[in-house]
Write a protein that binds this DNA or RNA. Structure first.
Lengths: 298, 298
DNA sequence: TAAGGTTACGGCGATCGTAACGATC
DNA sequence: GATCGTTACGATCGCCGTAACCTTA
């Protein structure tokens, strides 16, 4: 058993068990990868992969179990490298951030700008994805830190920090009936609604608010992305329910925003990272920067 | 970085940073170990060991930190091997049990005998140690399962199962004043006492019982081992406070035992193993055997 | 027939062991 | 002087790459 075999297993998973692709990723020729895999299986004493003919099409029971340990080893190995480079020069490195569109556009710009000013030698990679994907990004080591509102609860191997609290709000064109008068759930339900897709940016909170009532929202558009919602609100498709902080007083001055804090419970945007991952110094400072920005944001 | 370097680091710790001994344990010549260590430190970019001249005398800060990851990797690597051999033949293997004298002598014989009958091809190694050492045995991978009463609480990376409940009891020679009449803490405190050493077999419970009172026990002998206590009770040195199950009605018929369940809170003997360790099938069956024996024991 | 995987073989490099040396208790 | 660690050098064994071959979409 050796570390490159362990890594090969990880890479195999990432490539849907395609040995050729895996070999390429590891900068070795395909036959070499094939042999390494065979040697490892020989050492284990039973096959780790289900095969159809020669093709790898799945994992055996023992393969799955061993993969858990493989993941642990890879994580620890990666930690060692990060620790080492952090110790050598704690102002230099790479930070992979995974987040959703809303956070990327409305919350992160300021803290990231500040962070860049302090750490010009840290490269920041941002991956935009659905909240569900964010967890995968963390688990596969593709992201160091995830920032989002949904889904990052009760995950056992994640460290989760509350970042800031926010309310939903409606946006409507000027002159829309909802610009005046008290807003109630009943009244909202009489209009066509534009809001986030399932699993995005507090959509689950909206669901939970309406679920116990007899009302059903008439959702005519569900988008992952606030800007799409606003665009169609401008076209008069209906009432947008968006995250309050996604209303930009300058750019969105043609739209009227009204807070729904009294109707829909607040949502919390959180910071998450793997419990077992080593976060370098600059990463910890980045998190601090987020928390500072969060206070200004509230 | 490769696995033998990782292993070398672990072995170095086990040998008090003696490179020669470590090399021997790894079945390589000492110069090879020296080089491997250098290569690893070069890759990390800074020394992992404090040196006096050439001797390794301690670990640097980064060395300590990296050791945590090294331990994780070694554990996972070991798990892989156990998983593999468990899958190959789940009736064969080795079980390292760490426990204290009292458990080894009075509780374990029956379950171990039964287990041996079911699994003749599993070699059982028993290490007898102090409760404190048991934890170390688990953490260093020298023991798979620990059985004892003290110390195995609130350890974060241990899985702990309650095994059985027991009471303290006194043993005295026939005709001793304590053979008759009600036993109270006050009365106990008037006699010279023989009991377990600090940190052994419920000694802490005895301490906690007397602590809030004004009474102090006159402990004339503290032993790790029930048999030593009984021996000196027989010589008339005083009153033995032992674990109830350590009284053998046949062999100790010359002594009178009286239960202290009303005076001293019960103690619990627990089974402990590392949260991240893979316990092979026969190991799980061994634990079941313990729990069965525990019921008969109560 | 293209894509994925295995087998055979020669070459190169990593790592080992021997051995001589340096330093520290 | 015994123990512990480093450096130098030749030898070996593991692993890679090339290439031919097999098998299935």
């Amino acid at each position: 058993m050796n570390l490159s075999q362990i890594e090969l297993l990880r890479v195999l998973q990432e490539t849907n068990l395609n040995l050729s692709k895996a070999a390429e990723k590891m900068h070795i020729v395909q036959s070499a990868a094939s042999r390494q895999l065979q040697m490892f299986e020989a050492e284990i004493g039973s096959p780790l992969f289900e095969r159809q003919g020669k093709r790898l099409v799945g994992m055996t029971v023992i393969g799955e179990r061993i993969m858990q340990e493989v993941a642990i080893i890879n994580q620890a190995k990666n930690n060692i490298q990060v620790i080492a480079s952090d110790y050598m020069d704690s102002d230099k490195g790479t930070l992979h951030i995974a987040t959703t569109h809303t956070q990327a556009k409305y919350f992160l710009p300021r803290p990231i700008q500040r962070f860049r000013a302090k750490y010009p030698n840290v490269s920041i990679y941002m991956v935009q994805a659905s909240p569900e994907q964010l967890i995968t990004q963390l688990n596969t080591g593709k992201a160091d830190i995830a920032i989002c509102t949904e889904k990052v609860d009760e995950e056992n191997d994640l460290v989760i920090e509350k970042c800031y609290e926010w309310h939903h709000a409606i946006v409507v064109p000027e002159g829309h009936p909802l610009c005046t008068g008290t807003i109630t759930l009943q009244r909202l339900a009489t209009f066509p609604i534009l809001t986030y897709s399932f699993g995005f940016t507090g959509r689950s909170t909206i669901e939970r608010t309406f679920e116990p009532t007899d009302l059903t929202l008439d959702i005519v558009l569900a988008a992952a992305d606030t800007d799409v919602i606003k665009t169609y609100v401008r076209l008069g498709l209906g009432v947008g329910i968006i995250a309050g902080m996604a209303y930009d007083p300058l750019l969105d001055s043609d739209l009227v925003m009204r807070d729904l804090g009294d109707l829909i419970p607040s949502s919390y945007t959180k910071i998450a990272y793997l419990k077992n991952s080593y976060i370098p110094l600059f990463g910890q400072h980045f998190i601090e920067e987020l928390l500072i920005a969060a206070k200004e944001f509230g």
